[in-house]
């Protein structure tokens, strides 16, 4: 085999070589020994991210510089003691950018999700899981506890629960993981006549909450939310509901809110919202159509600026198909 004693190169050349490697190779190199781990850690790799996708198997995705570098597929074996997720067999790893899968030799025995997670969090100096996503209609609730044990102590940036899961699964997942900043759920974690039970998740001080509407969501549930961003999909709020929300915002409700967005607002037989009804009784100024004002990368021309009691301003952007956007400045 073509070999070269990398550790015996001059220090500068050694670091040069490590820096010149592809991200995938750097991460694999970090797994070779304690010293190689420290060497890659010292490179301060930029923009690393760690995602966990739980479907029928567990996928641990390690990203570097906005493209994925390594994906580990780890099968959950419930026969293993203490519900630990251990990759006892060979680990299937997807390699990028070479576009091929390889199966590692099983010399990482007793090295499972938890161990890989700790390893890469340390190497990437990123003590957070970027995305924890549950999906798959066959996903069993018994997956939750082992995952919880494996990621214990880690902050989660985005917790996402897809719509093919049951409300019971969603509820258990939301109760099991509390250490998240953004919450996306596509399934209402309660029975349809108990939508109010959702409020306990909405009142958290999150960065973002995004939830679906099954027809029972009330504007009150937006009002109890303490998130900086709220995104609702297919809500059936009327102009009167939105007017009530805005009047309460003017009086000081949702003080942390920076952005509120409803997707696919049902149009009530019209193409867009009637802004006269939405803004009824609220002092507002329309921003000229030729204005160049931009906030949060959104052009504000044509929007309606309103003021809260403490002087904070917000712009309401009328959108096609009845969508509604509130941008707090």
């Amino acid at each position: 085999m073509n070999t070269i004693p990398l550790h015996q190169l001059p220090d500068k050349a050694y670091i040069h070589t490590l820096r010149s490697m592809q991200n995938y190779d750097q991460l694999v190199y970090s797994l070779c020994s304690k010293n190689t781990k420290e060497a890659i850690k010292s490179l301060n790799l930029e923009k690393g991210a760690i995602n966990i996708y739980v479907d029928n198997s567990i996928e641990l995705e390690i990203c570097c510089e906005e493209s994925f570098a390594l994906i580990f597929y780890i099968d959950y074996d419930d026969s293993f003691p203490n519900n630990q997720i251990i990759a006892r067999e060979d680990i299937k790893v997807v390699v990028d950018p070479y576009g091929e899968s390889i199966r590692w030799e099983s010399n990482f025995q007793n090295f499972g999700l938890k161990e890989y997670l700790h390893h890469f969090c340390e190497v990437l100096r990123r003590p957070k899981i970027c995305v924890l996503l549950f999906s798959g209609e066959n996903l069993d609730e018994s997956f939750i506890e082992p995952i919880q044990k494996s990621i214990e102590g880690f902050q989660i940036e985005v917790l996402s629960i897809s719509d093919d899961l049951t409300p019971e699964f969603a509820q258990k997942a939301l109760e099991s993981f509390s250490n998240y900043e953004d919450l996306y759920f596509d399934v209402i974690p309660c029975e349809s006549h108990k939508v109010y039970e959702m409020d306990k998740y909405l009142i958290q001080n999150l960065m973002l909450v995004s939830f679906p509407d099954r027809g029972e969501t009330k504007i009150d549930q937006v009002l109890v939310s303490n998130s900086e961003e709220i995104s609702l999909r297919v809500p059936n709020f009327s102009e009167k509901d939105l007017n009530r929300f805005l009047k309460l915002w003017v009086r000081g409700s949702n003080p942390r809110l920076k952005y509120f967005y409803t997707v696919r607002q049902r149009p009530f037989g019209r193409d867009s919202l009637d802004m006269n009804l939405v803004l009824k009784g609220i002092k507002s100024n329309q921003i000229p159509l030729d204005s160049e004002e931009v906030h949060r990368r959104t052009k504000l021309a044509g929007g309606y600026r309103i003021w809260s009691f403490n002087g904070t301003t917000a712009v309401i952007m009328p959108r096609p198909q009845g969508q509604f956007e509130l941008i707090v400045e």
Partner: peptide
């Protein structure tokens, strides 16, 4: 150094240990 770095392409940890003659812990 880039040439040496390219030797790592697509290798597993076990293969990297052999290519770079890496000492064990």
């Amino acid at each position: 150094c880039k040439k040496v770095a390219n030797m790592a392409q697509g290798k597993t940890p076990a293969q990297l240990r052999r290519v770079y003659l890496l000492p064990s812990d």
